[in-house]
């Protein structure tokens, strides 16, 4: 299974739409796409995980480094529309408490 990364830039924020699986094979690609965005001062990076049906712990690692990078560079990272299985990982690892996560698949990100 592959991971498709689609980035759309709007005035207020940049949305990253992901679909597929995030694992050890696709994680480097995600890192390459995500880190430069979090390095832009003041940017809101919204990551839509609606079509991500599998993520392993390597994926968590990418989001942690993106979070650290966002903090250092004064940007913001938001995760939206997580499927249950993916959200569970954030919950177990306690990351849901320190990341901006909106898990609800329906009802948008607000």
């Amino acid at each position: 299974m592959n991971l498709v990364i689609d980035i759309s830039e709007e005035t207020e924020k940049t949305t990253v739409n992901l679909s597929g699986e995030i694992d050890a094979y696709t994680a480097p690609k995600l890192k390459e796409a995500l880190l430069p965005l979090t390095k832009q001062n003041g940017l809101i990076v919204e990551i839509n995980l609606e079509d991500v049906n599998y993520m392993d712990s390597t994926g968590l690692g990418i989001f942690i480094s993106a979070l650290k990078s966002a903090k250092e560079n004064n940007s913001q990272m938001k995760l939206v529309n997580l499927q249950d299985r993916v959200f569970r990982l954030f919950k177990i690892t306690g990351l849901d408490a320190i990341m901006d996560i909106n898990a609800a698949i329906r009802g948008g990100s607000e």
Binding site: L60, I64, L67, T93, G94, L95, A97, I98
Partner: peptide, 29 residues
């Protein structure tokens, strides 16, 4: 520290329950 929850087996009731625990993974904050 963010570890996959284990299980507790209660022999008297013959039930398994997830061991409740919350905490952030090591090395983040």
């Amino acid at each position: 520290a963010g570890h996959e929850p284990g299980f507790y087996y209660n022999a008297e009731k013959n039930t398994f329950t997830e061991i409740e625990s919350k905490g952030l993974v090591l090395g983040v904050s």
